[in-house]
Design a protein around this nucleic acid. Structure first.
Lengths: 206, 206, 206, 206
DNA sequence: CATGAATGAGAGTTCATTCAT
DNA sequence: GATGAATGAACTCTCATTCAT
């Protein structure tokens, strides 16, 4: 029995049909290192103990693994953000909680965040999958509810959502680059910006 | 003399030594249509009257054309932004002018902007080239100068720059999607957010 | 117990040990639809309730299933042709009976015939398996016997057999294409051709 | 300069853009040896001095080379058959000339004929490309003209064409297998069959 | 400098077949 | 004997890049 046999047998017993997870994990590592565009299906397979054909038992393309990867991430982050916003009794708690939770995730799961915001060929690339976009939409809905309930002024929720998203991702980028920047400071900055800014925002014409 | 010869000659006389420009123009069209990731050097050449070998007299790769393309764009946009900020006597003029100029560009040059923010494989992708990043840096420098001169409070210029960039691009995305959103309204929203927000921002610890 | 289990069990009880037949039947359908060349073992398995590994308990390759399929067909057709020829008291009965029986089979079992004569990649393909070739040989033997018994002139039995086979398959093709062509007319045509022609055929040099 | 270089240079000067022919020739050899179904594009390339990519500069698939191959053959054979039939003043000349020409081609160009009628996996396979089918059609048209001009009886031209084709190919098969069978004897047999048979054929109902 | 056919590495994918359960 | 996931050789095809003309 060769080395490979031993490894294969161990692997099979250990992971059963959940090679799926092995592929996703390998994909996360490879995407983070090479960037989405430069990554090939073969790269992902190579980062795995599996044979090339096995990949296609689980996914049709690198797009599909990427989706699965992001879905997994979204499943971890979105509920936390959601809970934070629902728990919020004030607008300040709403904003502060959102940014804090997001920046916390970015700091502690930088590998996954790297997959969203990549530096490749000297380019910065940001990729939003449907799951991520759905997360944005969720924020917009909550903002609308907040407007309804009167805890925040009646301003354009699409633009406000877009602004929060833009600030969140751009500052997250800083968080990854600047080790001296703390999650708390980043969250404090973004929170102050929106708390102060929202008061000044143009009211909607009804 | 074949058809192709005739076409080639016409093109050659017309554009003289500026095949470089022909390639860049073709690239802009192709990137906008196919997206950066999906575009191949072949695609760019095909959108040209030139032969494949000719490409390599001017560029080493699609990355390089992309850079050139963005440089060109930056050369058109950055000076305008710069001028706006330098002319500004007040903080309001600084912010308002910046957003207005940028959104104006986005609305009127959507093809180029599409090259920065693409929908491919159902994903939204944003790409920042070095030139674009340099534009961000320029903004940061101007913010620092504004802080020095006292027209704006002493807050973290990196985070402020990041926030402005995030808001600018995210709202620009809305501008492209929502035809009912005017450049003025978009600029008014972003301006109000920052004018109001900046007052509330944490002061730097010196 | 999963859905698949239920289906599998039903099938199992129904067909008992004759998975072999299930595979052959699936193969007949798939070959008729996709053509021999384009069909894969996977395709055949998929058209079955069985698992891929099970295939190999019964057949080694698609060639082998194809053989089994043709054997089955030959077992149905050859005895009929044989009986017809043996019963024949005259040369006319010999020829007429042969063509009539064959064309009758073609008209009423077009699915199986389609497996012999396929249109794939815009090409017409005809495949003769060993069983079919054995049928040709049987005809040759009978022709030789007929020559011996004096009911037909002494001509080259190989060439005569080849001619009959060629005419039979080519007209069978017309039969499948032209719905207005009746089995009787087709048989009458072929019979007349050979009855008239054989008289004129060169006698063998002994 | 390596051996390969020398060969490549010689090749290039010698064949210019007509690698096309080199591919077709290689294809003829490979198809004859492996059979159409079993042949892969790679097999064809391997039988060539060319690189894999070069194949795709000339053909899109093995289907396309096969077509080109058959077209080439048809271009050689069809005009000869046509000329023979047009020159024919009697029905005997028409039939005799056709078979003689065809069998002559088969005997002297067995490699090409092998490509139409192959023995693979113990199967006999016959492939008719559109070009070949067009040749059949041409025969049918000429038969119709012969009927019009009264040199032959008014019978179903489709069935007669089919019969001639069937006999021609089936006897051609014998010709390749049996070295003792001469082109003349084969042609004499087929001619006699049709000359004698046609007189007996059922007349068309008008 | 322009041309465009040739190149060949390598990506994506399929599929016959094995084998632990 | 049935199962079906794993395997990996092998195939199709693309594409950046070179280089003789």
């Amino acid at each position: 029995m060769t080395d490979a046999d031993v490894k294969a047998r161990g692997k099979r017993e250990e992971t059963k049909a959940s090679n799926r997870q092995a592929i996703i994990d390998a994909a996360r590592r490879v995407f983070a290192e090479l960037g989405y565009g430069a990554t090939t299906v073969r790269d992902i397979i190579r980062a795995t103990d599996l044979a090339s054909g096995t990949f296609y038992n689980y996914f049709k393309s690198k797009e599909e693994v990427y989706q699965a990867l992001q879905d997994e991430t979204a499943l971890r982050v979105r509920p936390r953000l959601r809970a934070e916003r629902i728990r919020a009794r004030t607008f300040e708690a709403f904003i502060s909680g959102s940014f804090h939770t997001f920046f916390d995730f970015v700091r502690h799961d930088e590998d996954t965040f790297a997959t969203m915001r990549q530096k490749q060929d000297n380019f910065h690339v940001r990729i939003d999958t449907p799951e991520v976009l759905a997360g944005f939409d969720e924020l917009r809905v909550d903002l609308e509810a907040a407007i309804q309930s009167g805890v925040m002024p009646d301003t354009d929720p699409d633009l406000l959502m877009a602004s929060m998203v833009g600030v969140a991702f751009e500052i997250a980028g800083q968080l990854v680059q600047r080790k001296d920047l703390s999650v708390d400071d980043a969250a404090a900055f973004a929170t102050a910006l929106f708390l102060g800014g929202v008061q000044a925002l143009p009211r909607r014409r009804r």
